[in-house]
Design a binder for these strands. Structure first.
Lengths: 225, 225
DNA sequence: GGCAGACTGTGGCCCACGTCACAAGCTGCC
DNA sequence: GGCAGCTTGTGACGTGGGCCACAGTCTGCC
């Protein structure tokens, strides 16, 4: 079960069992299948989510309908916390990329915990600060790196977070279509496809549906910077 | 004097006079002239700054030496707060763009205030959350807008924050060279120059050294999206 | 007042990448 | 099992904008 993942998420890890149980009973469990929306841009943001299992994409749709992904989140990660600090409608849409289990918690309930245990909010703050740094790094990449470079970097990042050793390489089950990967790196599907093909026939990785096996991490890393 | 600006910055506005004076005496005043560095990427980040007057650019230098600006900050704004939440070396370099007056405050001193008045930290959190939203919007622009569009948007944004009515338009003294403006929008100086020239001879704005007068805001806005 | 160094203004060349257009697999549902 | 609709693979073409190379203007310093 993924209860253990929730329990040990940074948000709750420091609570003792009694404290955790008190907050746990205010949480609601949900499951989603690929393509189902967890929340939509513009809707009121009064809840926060913690992923137990699965994967979620956080995306933003431009007025002209073009879409761009802000982040991919996995087990143990927190979702929707921005509107905890800055109340108002959601500024992004969260969609499940695979079968996903998560719990939701009303902001009000969480704030009660934070009141009692202010040191926990440090974890939330740090995660927000890190998200900001990440985003800044991504912007720098958009400006300075070409598409293959961004693809390589993104795969390495996903590999570090979700990969597991297999088949003489690092298997990364990203659950993304090439279209979604393109939206994540800020390019078109076609260009991403060609970059992947290039990496593949250099033997740096091996494509396999919605996952890849990274074979030559060192070279990918060099290509990424 | 710019004391009033500091006093009414979101960080301190809610304090009563006694509370403010208590923290005020832990602050140190500094002034910088154009080009002087307030802090440098990689140095230990143990202070936070509040701008009283002037303007500051926040930039990041890539390993290959190319530079990119994250934000332009003006009077009343806070600087260096990220390392308050996520301690460690500074991840950006702050440089004065004009004659700038500011005060600095050790994190430790500020944390003492926040302990006593936790509601104040809400303001800090909100400003961080807003910074994150801003950055996300900037990323979307990098992906979806062309250079002239980003230039138009950036000028409108600066205009909204620093502009004042004059000469039948909105005068924006941005204190940026075209090179710096280019680093801010993620393009080269040459392309930015050509965009500005284009806007200028369409009569949408008027160039004037390190400031511009925005004449046709409506059209600039349309160009920006 | 004159020289040095920064900044602005513009044209030419070229390539990375977006757009378009299809072909070919894969998946799943009736 | 077959058709419909995703998804992947790849080639042709056009162009926005980076890079280079100057010329012209502005600023401040000796």
């Amino acid at each position: 079960m993924d209860e253990a993942v929730i329990r040990s998420s940074p948000l709750f890890a420091e609570l003792n069992d009694a404290g955790y149980l008190a907050i746990r009973e205010r949480m609601t469990e949900h499951t989603f299948r690929r393509g189902e929306e967890i929340f939509h841009e513009g809707s009121p943001g009064d809840k926060l989510f913690v992923l137990g299992a699965g994967k979620v994409k956080l995306g933003h749709t431009a007025p002209d309908g073009r879409e761009h992904l802000l982040a991919i989140l996995g087990p143990g990660e927190i979702l929707g916390e921005v509107s905890l600090y800055d109340p108002g409608p959601r500024t992004a849409t969260a969609t499940a990329l695979a079968k996903t289990a998560l719990v939701s918690l009303q902001h009000a309930d969480l704030l009660r915990v934070l009141d009692a245990r202010p040191e926990i909010s440090q974890h939330l703050l740090r995660s927000l600060a890190q998200r900001l740094r990440r985003t800044n790094a991504a912007m720098a990449d958009l400006i300075f790196s070409d598409v293959p470079g961004r693809v390589a970097k993104t795969l390495l990042d996903l590999g570090q977070r979700f990969g597991q050793p297999a088949d003489g390489g690092l298997r990364v089950t990203h659950d993304l279509t090439q279209e979604e990967l393109a939206q994540l790196v800020g390019a078109t599907r076609e260009t991403v496809n060609k970059s992947l093909a290039e990496f593949s026939n250099r033997g740096w990785l091996q494509l396999d549906g919605r996952s890849v096996v990274l074979l030559d991490i060192e070279r990918l890393r060099r290509r990424g910077r």
